[in-house]
Nucleic acid binder design. Sequence first.
RNA 1: GGUCGGGUGGCCGAGCGGCUAGGCAGAGCUCUGCAAAAGCUCCUACAGCGGUUCAAAUCCGCUCCCGACCUCCA
Length: 511
Amino acid sequence: MTIQQIEIYNTLTRKKEKFVPINPPFVGMYVCGPTLYSDVHIGNCRTFISFDLIYRYLVHAGYKVRYVRNITDVGHLEDEVAGAGEDRIGKQARLKKLEPMEIIQRYAFGFREVMSILNILPPSIEPTASGHIPEQIEMTQKIMEKGFAYEKDGNIYFDVEKFSKTNNYGILSGRNIEDQLDNTRTLDGQEEKKGRLDFALWKKAKPEHIMRWNSPWGIGFPGWHIECSAMSQKYLGETFDIHGGGMDLIPTHHTNEIAQSVGCCGVVPVRYWVHTNMLTLNGQKMSRSLGNVFLPVELFTGMKLAADSPTATPSQAKLEGKHPLFEKAYSPMCVRFFILQTHYRSTLDFSNEALQASEKGFERLMNAVNTLEKLKPSEKSSADIKSLHAKCYAAMNDDFNSPILLAHLFDGVKIINSIHAGTAIVSKEDLTLLKKTFRDFVFDVLGLKEEKETSNNDELANNLMNLVLEIRNEAKSKKDFSTSDKIRDGLAKAKISIKDSKEGTTWEIEN
RNA sequence: GGUCGGGUGGCCGAGCGGCUAGGCAGAGCUCUGCAAAAGCUCCUACAGCGGUUCAAAUCCGCUCCCGACCUCCA
C-alpha cells in the first residue's frame, strides 16, 4: 500500500495544506474528548465520528497513528463568576450524594457505549485529566518559571498580555489581542486576574469543592485548558502532527492550549489544527446551555428518556413516551451515514426529513454491498472500475471529503445494480477491485456496518421461511395469486419483506 | 458592538473561474401476475444588485438574511 498524499485544511493557515507528518509513517493525533459532567449528546458524537473517519483513513492510507483522545473528569468551574467556586461534577456529587468518581464512571461508561454503538473506534490512548495531575502541576510550574504565569491567593493565572508581547496569542482564532481586550463586554469576578484574558492554570479549592489535589500552591484543582496541553505533550511530544476538536474550542480552549505549550516549551505544539463544525437544530447550534440537546439513546429509539432514568446509557436507560422531535427511531448506522454525508467542516442541520433520506440511501448502499458479493465476472468491463477506485482515494485525500466519497460509491452502486440486472459487465480483475473498493471504503474508512439481522444465523427462522416461501412459490406457479399475496401481506404485517427475483425469493426483517 | 463563517434545485448536501456531484422526494417507461427491488429517462439550482473576465454558483464591491465565537460547550 502506497501512502496517500492527503491535503488537510489547517485552521492555523485557513487553507488546505499537504499533510507531511513529522516522523512518517508515524502520526500523532490528539482530539479533545468529552467532559464527563453529563451525557454526550448527538452533537458531540458528530465530532467523534468525524475524527473517527480521519483516524480510519489515515490508518487505511498507511500511516501508523497514535490517536489520543482525553477524558476530562476533574470538574471545570461552573460558576466562577458568581464566586460559587463549585465545579459541575462536585455539585452533582453533593446533590445526589454520590462520589465524584462514581458519576464520572457512569458517564464514561455511557460515553464508551455510545461510541461503540456508532462504530467509533477506540483511540490508542484515552487519558483522564484526573490521572495526570502531577503532569499538569509540573507544566504549570514550568510556565511560571518562564514568567508567563503568576500566583494570586493560591490561584495560578496565565499572563496573556505578557505572553502576547512576544507571541501572537490570537494566531489560531485570527483575532488580534487589542480587539479582544477592547471588548466592551464586562465580566464580574475578574479582580483577581491582572488581565481580562488571563486564565487559570490552577485553582484553589474552596472548602466545599470535592475534587481536590495537593499542589505547591495549596489544595486545588487544575485549570480548564492545562490537561490537554499536559497530556498531549506526554503522549505525543512537544510538537505533534494533528490536534482536533469542535470549532467552538478555537477561540478559547485551543488558543490557550497553544499559549500554554509555547509558554512552557517555547515551541509551537501542533502542525495541523483540524476543527469540525457544529450540528444544528433548526439552524441553531445544539448545546447544553441552549437546552436543545437530545441524546443518542433518544434518537436510536425515538423515545424520550424518562425523567427518573438513572442513566442515559443506551443499554440501561429508562425510556417513556415518544420523543416529540422524532417521527421515528433512527438506527445508529443511519445516523452515522447521515453525518458522513456532510463534510466535517460544514454545519449539519438535523431534521427528520434529512434523516429519513439518509436511511433510504444507507439501505440502498448496503443492498448494493450485498449484491456485489453475488456478481459474476465477464470477459471484459463496460464500466471504468479503476477510475472509480482512484476517485474514492482522491475524495478522501481532499480533506477527508466523505460526501464526495459517498457520491462516487453511489456511482458504484449503479454499476453494481446494472451488472446484476444484466445491463453492464465486469471483468474478473475489475470485479475483485470493485469488491475491494467497497469493502475498504464502506467498512474500513467510513466505518459503516450491516445492521440488518442476517437471518442466516437463525436456523429456525430460516427453515420456517424456506417452507413459507416454497408454499408461496407453488401457489404462484399455479397462478393462485390470492394465496401468494396473502402470504406476502401476512409476512409484511410481521415486518418481514420479501423480494422476488430471477434467482428466487429473498426475505429480510424490516427494522 | 467586535471577529469569523454561511446563504445552492421540493428537501438534504458537494463543488469554489469553463466540463454544470450524489442522496431523498416527484413524473414517465422497462422488468414483474401484482408488489418490492433494480435499470433507463425527465425535473438543471446557485440570496439580491453591480463589477472583473472570452467565461462566475465559484473572484471583487455593496445590500439583505442566517449562524458561530467573544462566558462552560464538540
